[in-house]
Design a protein around this nucleic acid. Structure first.
Lengths: 393, 393
DNA sequence: TTTTTTCATTGACAGCGGAAAAGAACACCC
DNA sequence: GGGTGTTCTTTTCCGCTGTCAATGAAAAAA
């Protein structure tokens, strides 16, 4: 848990206030009447919830009296004042740390990248703290207090305790990140798995707004998946969920380090694609970008590799959709750079493997640059700043 | 929705009362103090919630003052009086209707089977209503009012409207079951998918009690899966979820009627096993029971078919566990009759395909005879009788 | 200008659940 | 056998929350 923040009290104290606040936060400027309808609270309750939030400066009257009804008294729009509070989000990757300073609406104000010389905690933690310090200095320039720090790390993360249980990618075990970062910076800290953090950002501020069931699939160095069911991000009973990277797609496919054969990640991740294109063309390619170039140039065997990757991704999505029946699947990640190459294959494989009404699911892509991952971390900080009563829908 | 029941008011009106009631219902006789601890309500709130429920006769003081503390005042146990209300659960299969009369604790008091001469609504609906009437007569013998009727049907069921959208097995489309049964019997009716209904029963009264994330996998004529995430049964955005029967396990496997290849259902369902054993042995087997007998007798090709089925089931479970990270998977269904033949294969394939901590998931079997499916339907009726505030955990 | 419609606010009020204290029922200890 | 301590249960009181009903406000329509 975050060390009790002396910094600032939570804006929303009662369930109703949280509900109102998160509704306005996600659904843009709204009239009070509209908030009442969406939350099924009484208009009176909305008024009473809004007042203290306005006095605290978290909500402001929006002067654009945009949507006035055809008849009757015009409505006053209410929106969240993003500038009221700042947050820092940090994403740790294998070779760099990405940090962003966002406002309360999770808009990025400053973004920073910092290369890493190693992956071990002894290297990463000081760099991370230095990054936060830098961003705190930046924040001074805005004259607004930083109210939370969110950190996103790949792997098995216990977000209640703020401990990285095991990150295969970083080779970390039981690193008490929240404690370390909290004592070093004095900020309330949230630590979460990177894909879950990105999912939170999409749920509150992105393509998942208003949806109670959706999935976010990330394609890149690995294949990940964040899930929202019943309006809540899924963590699983043991803190791990959405591990679609090791769904076995093809029992005869390449052997994966996880011990299985034909995992999605062994077919469609960047390293796998690079390996396969190398093997298929015999060329000593240096990076997946070159493989991509080759395929774009029309090389048939490279294209074939991408087609297989697309099919694997499509089938993995089909599995998720069959199991959970989400309303939407958002495809994202660096791997999207090659989207034009396998979009067709993804969709075809998805439609074929999705059973029945599952095909009603809306499949969309969303290019999320690396800073977005750090923004996801900030979103988790915002979420915990607002409080425990974070009902969606 | 159920037509407003003149029959009986809902026992629990406030959220706290519901919480107390469902806690006592699922976790057997409890002391008030224990209820307070589990629900994190104050002891005073528990007392105040219990009183009206006792006056209504739903809760009773349990005279076995079993667990008294080592020191201090002995506690009074409180439990649900099952005899206070009766419910009817009906499951419709292809060739028969199974009906049960249960008490408020979902214990079966009477079970009835009724063969069907056809599957079309014109045949099934009158038979279903006749079955309910019979059970209502039985209920008179107990001198207790029947407070709800639950109906379970396989396929795509809209449980809010009580309409069977599409049941491939019965070849039904848009059958307004709740309306028909409600007007014919005068009972409040709930209609739900059969696997979901069974999942509800397990969640409240079975192997899922106290778990916020688990899966129920049914193996038999088809392969189904019910999911509980965050303490709630998953229905998906469009009312369909848990369709693991058409996860594609083997791209080169037998073609399935769904258009895909190598579906679990095409490998491990009873019809698939029968087909494969026939093909492998060349014998004209009449039923899956004979195939089972052959395999039990040691026929190597029959055993091979079962081994493949087990592997498919294990891998499907592995997929679910990778995606959702449940605490437990309950394997059930008629197909369990052959469990000794493929238990090992299921477990091996599961462990191999479950990634990382997913293997921490507890895999168990539970023989649920056909009456249990009807009991599941009754469980949905009980759930809706108790009211909308049915928090689990 | 009056009416109608919708939005927003106010004040009264019911009720829920918590805190604290009292009471109850036992074991233990001298 | 009477304190003492412990735990369970109930009672009383009280704050707080959100609804209800009524009122006021601001515009379009009549």
């Amino acid at each position: 848990m975050c060390p009790a923040p002396l910094h600032e009290t939570v804006p929303a104290t009662t369930p109703a206030a949280s509900l109102v606040f998160t509704t306005v936060l996600s659904h843009g400027p709204l009239t009070r009447a509209e908030v009442a309808r969406r939350t099924s609270l009484s208009p009176a309750a909305v008024t009473k919830a809004v007042r203290p939030l306005m006095e605290g400066g978290y909500l402001v009257e929006d002067l654009d009296e945009g949507a006035r009804p055809a008849i009757g008294r015009p409505a006053n729009l209410v929106r969240v004042d993003g500038g009221r509070a700042l947050f820092i989000g940090v994403k740790v990757t294998g070779d760099e740390i990405i940090g962003v300073l966002t406002d309360l609406c999770c808009r990025i104000r400053v973004a920073r990248h910092m290369p890493l010389t190693g992956r071990e905690p002894a290297v990463v933690l000081p760099a991370l703290i230095a990054m936060v310090q830098e961003l705190l200095v930046e924040a001074d320039g805005f004259g607004v207090r930083v109210c939370g720090l969110g950190i996103a790390v790949s792997g098995d993360v216990d977000r209640l305790d703020g401990v990285v249980r095991y990150s295969p990618f970083l080779d970390w075990r039981d690193v008490p990140l929240a404690d370390v970062a909290g004592t070093a910076t004095g900020l309330p800290v949230t630590v979460d798995n990177d894909v879950r953090a990105l999912t939170v950002a999409e749920q509150w501020f992105g393509a998942g707004v208003g949806l109670s069931d959706f999935a976010l699939v990330t394609v890149g160095a690995g294949i990940g998946c964040g899930l929202v069911v019943h309006g809540r991000v899924v963590s699983g009973a043991h803190g791990v969920a959405g591990e679609i990277g090791h769904l076995s797609i093809d029992p005869l496919g390449p052997r994966c380090h996880c011990g299985n054969q034909g995992c999605v990640e062994g077919i469609a991740s960047d390293p796998a694609i690079l390996r396969e294109v190398r093997a298929a063309t015999g060329r000593p390619l240096a990076s997946v970008a070159e493989a991509l170039e080759l395929a774009r140039g029309g090389d048939p065997s490279a294209r074939e590799v991408y087609a297989r990757a697309g099919e694997a991704i499509g089938r993995a999505i089909g599995s998720v959709v069959n199991v959970l029946g989400p309303e939407r699947v958002i495809i994202s990640g660096e791997g999207l750079a090659a989207y034009d190459l396998f979009a067709e294959d993804i969709r075809t494989a998805f439609v074929r493997s999705a059973f029945g009404t599952a095909a009603r699911c809306d499949l969309m892509t969303r290019p999320l640059p690396f800073e977005e991952w750090a923004r996801g971390a900030a979103a988790t900080a915002i979420q915990s700043f607002i409080g425990p009563h974070t009902y969606q829908d």
